[in-house]
Simulated assay, not measured.
Amino acid sequence: MKLALVIDDSRVVRKVARRILEDLDFEVAEAGDGAEGLAWCRTEMPDAVLLDWNMPVMDGLEFLQRLRQEPGGDAPRVVFCSVENDLDRVRSALDAGADEYIMKPFDGDIVASKLTLAGVL
Rank of each mutant, 00 (worst) to 15 (best):
1 M>P: 04
1 M>Y: 02
1 M>G: 11
2 K>N: 12
3 L>H: 05
4 A>N: 06
4 A>M: 07
5 L>T: 01
6 V>G: 08
9 D>P: 08
10 S>G: 08
11 R>V: 08
13 V>A: 14
14 R>F: 00
14 R>D: 00
14 R>S: 04
15 K>T: 12
16 V>W: 02
17 A>T: 01
17 A>K: 11
18 R>K: 15
19 R>M: 11
21 L>D: 00
22 E>N: 09
23 D>S: 14
24 L>W: 02
24 L>Q: 08
26 F>S: 07
28 V>E: 03
29 A>K: 10
29 A>E: 12
29 A>D: 07
32 G>Y: 01
32 G>C: 08
33 D>K: 06
34 G>E: 08
34 G>H: 06
35 A>I: 01
36 E>W: 03
38 L>D: 02
39 A>Q: 13
40 W>A: 12
41 C>D: 05
41 C>W: 03
42 R>G: 15
42 R>D: 04
43 T>I: 09
43 T>G: 15
44 E>F: 03
45 M>S: 01
45 M>L: 13
45 M>P: 00
46 P>K: 15
48 A>N: 05
48 A>K: 13
49 V>D: 05
49 V>I: 15
49 V>A: 12
50 L>I: 07
50 L>Q: 06
51 L>P: 00
52 D>S: 12
52 D>F: 07
53 W>P: 04
53 W>F: 14
54 N>L: 14
54 N>M: 15
54 N>H: 12
56 P>N: 01
57 V>A: 09
59 D>W: 07
59 D>K: 10
59 D>V: 07
60 G>E: 09
61 L>M: 10
61 L>N: 06
62 E>T: 15
63 F>P: 04
63 F>M: 14
64 L>I: 04
64 L>N: 04
64 L>C: 13
64 L>H: 05
65 Q>E: 14
66 R>P: 00
66 R>F: 01
66 R>E: 11
67 L>S: 10
68 R>N: 03
69 Q>E: 15
71 P>L: 09
73 G>P: 01
74 D>A: 14
75 A>K: 15
75 A>F: 02
76 P>E: 12
76 P>Q: 15
76 P>M: 15
77 R>C: 11
77 R>K: 15
77 R>W: 00
78 V>W: 02
78 V>E: 05
79 V>C: 13
79 V>S: 09
80 F>P: 02
82 S>T: 15
82 S>Y: 06
82 S>Q: 06
84 E>F: 02
87 L>V: 14
87 L>K: 14
89 R>P: 00
89 R>V: 10
90 V>R: 14
90 V>E: 02
92 S>H: 15
94 L>V: 05
95 D>W: 02
96 A>T: 08
96 A>K: 12
97 G>C: 04
97 G>Y: 01
97 G>H: 09
98 A>M: 05
98 A>V: 02
100 E>H: 09
101 Y>C: 03
102 I>P: 00
103 M>V: 15
103 M>G: 11
103 M>C: 10
104 K>C: 06
105 P>T: 01
105 P>F: 06
108 G>E: 07
112 A>D: 02
112 A>C: 03
113 S>H: 07
113 S>N: 13
113 S>T: 11
114 K>M: 07
114 K>T: 06
114 K>Q: 13
115 L>I: 04
116 T>W: 03
116 T>E: 10
116 T>M: 13
116 T>C: 03
117 L>W: 05
117 L>C: 10
118 A>Y: 03
119 G>A: 05
119 G>M: 09
120 V>S: 05
120 V>H: 07
121 L>D: 06
